[in-house]
């Protein structure tokens, strides 16, 4: 699939809703000891939503980069690389506390249940993103076409041609 701007936005949201959210819910369910815990689930969901949001903002940039390539394509390797860049940027900002809705420990206050500035968060957030990233990236390699047969001709957009 060679993405168009609309295709990028739609596919990103589709994968966030149908892969990202369910995988995150399963992840926090196990993390919380096989039970539902809103206070653990929310930071991870917001974290993933922030990455998705940053991705939506970057998509026009990617499309611009595509127009400088003769084939106006986007190699799978770039997709792979920039997915981790998006994660890295959001996570780095979260650790410094610059993203208000992602909790970090503040001196003199009770530390939050999920503290993005803690060392434990490095492993957990990476694990979480890896679990989301693997199925979404694999889906882009072709399996989505088995459900949306026109998707590859529409540059990643859904619906008819």
């Amino acid at each position: 699939m060679i993405p168009t701007l609309a295709g990028r936005l739609q596919t990103r949201l589709l994968l966030f809703i149908f892969v990202g959210i369910p995988v995150t819910l399963a992840f926090v369910f196990i993390l919380a000891g096989w039970k539902w815990d809103y206070d653990i689930a929310m930071p991870f969901l917001l974290f993933l939503a922030t990455i998705t949001g940053l991705g939506l903002l970057l998509d026009p940039v990617y499309i611009f980069l595509q127009t400088t390539r003769w084939d106006r394509d986007w190699p799978f390797a770039y997709q792979f690389f920039f997915s981790w860049v998006e994660f890295g940027v959001v996570f780095a900002l979260a650790r410094t506390g610059l993203i208000p809705w992602l909790p970090v420990a503040v001196e003199g206050q009770q530390p939050p249940l999920v503290d993005f500035s803690s060392n434990a968060a490095i492993g957990l957030a990476t694990l979480h993103f890896t679990l989301v990233f693997i199925p979404t990236f694999l889906a882009l390699l072709g399996p989505l076409q088995t459900i949306f047969v026109r998707w590859r001709f529409k540059g990643g957009q859904l619906g008819k041609l």
Binding site: M1, I2, P3, T4, Q66, D71, D73, R152, F153, G155
Partner: peptide
């Protein structure tokens, strides 16, 4: 060129 047209002619913005 990998194929006989730029790749995005098949399904990208050029199509």
């Amino acid at each position: 060129q990998p194929f006989n047209w730029p790749k995005s002619c098949w399904g990208g913005d050029l199509r």
